[in-house]
């Protein structure tokens, strides 16, 4: 049992993990605002971010409904410290160059889509409803980022080198997506959560096919970094949250 289990029951831990993936990745995308390579890309990145924030809000609203101590959606986002964020480490990795952003997003998209597909059949009606809502948007994200992996991989020598390096670099964070702790196993047994043991092979097949089509080499599995789901993060999350939460913490309850 980890420290998180003391704060939330299994379902709320799971809900926060789903919400935090969306929140943290969505916030990372926002950092591209006014920095994207072309205007169209900027619009696309911001709209993808908007989808993720909307999905995070749905997960958080359900978590708040089940646990009054979370107060509300804003407070749950802005007042939880780094150690209480439960997102996958892959979501918090810095944007790097455009290829890094695309590699990170595509590998997450495939996991996200497969997980949501499984959650559409969740024994928990609200979880199933949120998943069914989210998946329509996430399929679109996957399609978009897959296209970019193909274009960069099968593009110029420089774009090929950049996306290959990006895949190699981010690979150390993919293993965490398929690890299951006591929270996951309990909810899988109850028919509520997605079974990552099943999803892993589907994910590997999908990603291998895309990388092959993009003329990229599938990175070798080495050491996999774990801990995000239990609140143990890489250095970059704290820095991101410090910026994201500063206004709300200086003006608690601020709305706009």
């Amino acid at each position: 049992m980890n420290q998180i289990d003391k704060n939330h029951d299994a379902l709320n831990t799971y809900l926060l993990r789903m919400a935090d993936n969306d929140l943290v990745l969505g916030q990372r995308l926002c950092e591209w605002c006014a920095n994207a390579p072309v205007l169209e890309e900027e619009t696309a990145l911001m709209n993808t971010s908007l989808d993720l924030f909307g999905q995070a809000r749905n997960w958080l609203n359900y978590a708040v409904e089940r646990d009054a101590e979370l107060q509300d959606c804003d407070a749950a986002t802005m007042l939880r410290d780094e150690r209480h964020y439960l997102n996958l480490l892959i979501c918090e990795q810095p944007n790097g160059n455009f290829a890094d952003t695309i590699a990170r997003h595509y590998l997450f998209d495939v996991w996200h889509r497969l997980t949501l597909e499984a959650l559409c059949n969740s024994a928990d009606e609200t979880v199933a409803a949120i998943a069914a809502k989210s998946i329509l948007e996430v399929r679109y994200h996957e399609q978009r980022h897959r296209n970019w992996v193909l274009r960069l991989g099968d593009g110029t020598a420089e774009s090929h080198a950049k996306i290959q390096t990006a895949m190699d670099d981010i690979w150390t964070f993919v293993g965490e997506m398929f690890t299951q702790d006591a929270v996951d196993l309990q909810l899988v047994a109850a028919g509520i959560a997605a079974d990552q043991a099943v999803i892993e092979s589907q994910w590997r097949d999908t990603v291998a096919a895309t990388l092959a089509e993009a003329t990229l080499t599938l990175p070798a599995d080495g050491y996999h970094q774990l801990g995000g789901k239990q609140g143990e993060h890489t250095e970059s999350l704290g820095l991101m949250l410090a910026e994201m939460q500063s206004l709300y913490r200086a003006h608690p309850g601020a709305v706009w």
Binding site: L50, D51, L52, G54, Q55
Partner: peptide
Amino acid sequence: TPTYSGCP
């Protein structure tokens, strides 16, 4: 019902 989850 919202069209998109994040529709502002």
